[in-house]
């Protein structure tokens, strides 16, 4: 999803957390470019998941194995703990069943990596103060044509994690491709989190 976004700046952050040879599931994989990057940079194996016919075809052309499936229906086709890492790159904000999907990610993956555009970014706040919904590189849609139905900030996400048994292992916040460490919820345009379940890894399937 959101493959229109130029130069997916979260790719490098994600690759930095993927161990060499890891088995990875990329949800909402688009044309498979992240998996291809991880295959080449980290010798990773795994599959993409996408619902769109054209993305499935693009993955095949990209040499990426893809499973056509609707993420909103959950990940029942995948065993618990069957992947080292399940990635959801810039897709969470477009999902209807946010809670269920995050739970599923940490069931199927020993770890999860989730990235999303930060609605608390100062430019977004400014646009909203000016009386309009934010439109930016990370949120490139108008209010009437956006696939993004759940807009949230870093603070919102972290509060969600605390309340849902999700442990934040690492966080990278970016703006203009640069890392942001000062007031990230204000100056970060894109956030990338590495997560697991509070109390350790997901149970391995029987």
């Amino acid at each position: 999803m959101n493959s229109a976004l130029p130069a997916r700046s979260d790719f490098n952050a994600i690759a930095g957390w993927i161990k060499p040879g890891a088995h990875v599931l990329d949800l909402g994989c688009g044309d498979g470019s992240l998996l291809r990057f991880l295959k080449e940079a980290r010798n990773a194996t795994g599959y993409g998941v996408d619902i769109a016919d054209d993305n499935v075809l693009a993955c095949v052309k990209n040499g990426i194995d893809v499973i056509q499936s609707d993420l909103e229906a959950g990940l029942s086709g995948f065993d618990s703990g069957s992947f080292d890492c399940v990635i959801l790159s810039q897709t969470l904000q477009a999902m209807k069943h946010t809670e269920r999907l995050l739970k599923e990610i940490l069931r199927v993956g020993r770890e999860g990596i989730v990235s999303f555009p930060n609605f608390g970014y100062w430019r977004a706040r400014l646009q909203l103060m000016g009386g309009h919904m934010p439109v930016s590189k990370e949120l490139p849609y108008q209010w009437y044509d956006t696939p993004n139905i759940h807009l949230f900030t870093l603070a919102d996400f972290e509060k969600f994690c605390r309340g849902h048994g999700v442990r934040i292992l690492e966080r990278v916040v970016l703006a203009g491709g640069q890392s942001v460490t000062t007031w990230p919820n204000m100056f970060g345009a894109l956030a990338v989190y590495r997560l697991d379940r509070t109390g350790g890894a997901a149970p391995v399937s029987a």
């Binding site: 088995h23 194996t45 993955c59 194995d65 893809v66 056509q68 086709g77 995948f78 065993d79």
Partner: peptide, 9 residues
């Protein structure tokens, strides 16, 4: 998938 085979569906 259980056998980590190359599959597109």
């Amino acid at each position: 998938l259980d056998n980590r085979l190359n599959v597109t569906y």
